[in-house]
Design a protein around this nucleic acid. Structure first.
Lengths: 238, 238
DNA sequence: GAGTGGTCTAGACCACACT
DNA sequence: GTGTGGTCTAGACCACTCT
């Protein structure tokens, strides 16, 4: 049973989507909504907080709550499969995703990896590189580092399938969030070989650390995307 | 006078930063904090919500509130001057920023610009391009479209200074947020000319719409950054 | 069972915008 | 002044974790 504020947010979202609320008028005020849903105003506000974060509405003190004029422009973007987080969305065409394992090794971490994963120099890590294909077209090349002690028994076959699924379903690990830096780069040798890049084709690099529920860094990765296959969407509410 | 929950968040932030709270233990529980600050638990929770969004702490039901193990890694990134928004930060070396106006024209909007800015085909727009320098080194090339009716009296001298300052201080406009897409691109002719790019140097493009307080789109821009001068940081809390 | 955060209530007063 | 959202109270019960 979801919390009441989640149900209320869902209902208000549905009404906005189905244009049950006029786009150019403020929503009913919080007192009216509290009465309608037989709840307190605090609960209505918690529902509104959620809709604000989603970019669906915004509030103005003394004026009311308004529907964002072009929220529908946001919804044209799709969540990619491996992208389990909220505020940012990766943009890709739909299709079937598969993986080819380019490298799968065990070694000790570099200094940068030690500080990013908060581990010691003698804590072994997996080091693997995967080419990710969308409908058999190369899409991204992901170089990932994971501490062995967090992910016992990782095998090549897991890499060919979904690592995320193995982590979640078999090991019961839960992700908390991520920290990412996005930049443009010249393609390196691997990019040219596997992503079919020319010298002049840039790659988009996402350097990311993904954290578990308890704040432990789980993976440190550099993901390279073909410049013509993806973008990253960032929505920001003042 | 700031709200009480803001003051409490500030004090707890200060304590975490100064290591007054041990990094490996949970914070005092919400009941204790409510007692200490002579307030209700709801107010403590509102303060915590703020610290969670900042990436400083996280909570676990039944366990407590914990300091994120590497929040200090986040704080190494600086907010750029024109980046008035919260969750994403642009990364740049510090220094003096100046602008050179490459183009400054008036015209009617394209279809893409009409839908992005929610204006009609006969609503004139400013179309200007500026080269932005950091310590006299080219950093970014920004192509901006703004509806004339929102920004009366924009002049070349404003472009050489801070457009943002003119909007805020003279016209009293307030920003609400932004919507951005980040991607890597091959440099175009202007990029090569002004950013000193070679054919093989990629650019990072940020396509963005910035909104006013009331949801009106204010500007639609394509900003090109030298690939070796910047990245974009995204923090995400599940 | 004890301790923790998550949700919820039924009010109250404040800050701000409109008229 | 009236109406709106923003904040705050002093409790209550629920869900979850740990022992």
């Amino acid at each position: 049973m979801a919390a009441k504020y989640v149900l209320i947010a869902r209902e208000i979202r549905r009404r906005i989507m189905s244009k049950q609320y006029p786009a150019n008028e403020p929503l009913p005020d919080q007192f009216a909504l509290a009465a309608e849903f037989s709840t307190s105003r605090m609960t209505i506000q918690q529902a509104m907080r959620q809709l604000i974060i989603e970019g669906l509405v915004y509030t103005r003190q003394g004026q009311g709550t308004f529907i964002r004029k072009n929220f529908h422009q946001f919804s044209q973007w799709d969540l990619a499969g491996s992208d389990y987080f909220g505020a940012t969305k990766t943009w890709g065409h739909k299709g079937r995703v598969s993986s080819v394992v380019i490298r799968f090794e065990l070694r000790f971490p570099t200094e940068k990896e030690q500080t990013s994963l908060l581990i010691n120099a003698d804590a072994p890590v997996y080091d693997f590189i995967r080419l990710r294909l969308l409908n058999d077209e190369p899409m991204s090349l992901d170089a990932t580092i994971m501490p062995v002690n967090l992910v016992p028994g990782l095998s090549r076959s897991h890499l060919e399938g979904s690592v995320f699924q193995y982590l979640q379903q078999t090991l019961g690990l839960k992700m908390m969030g991520s920290y990412r830096v996005v930049r443009a780069l010249k393609p390196d040798v691997l990019d040219m070989q596997y992503l079919n890049c020319q010298e002049t084709d840039p790659v988009m690099e996402v350097e990311q650390v993904i954290y578990l529920e308890d704040g432990t860094p789980l993976e440190y990765a550099h993901c390279h995307y073909r410049y013509d296959h993806s973008g990253i969407v960032i929505v920001n509410n003042g």
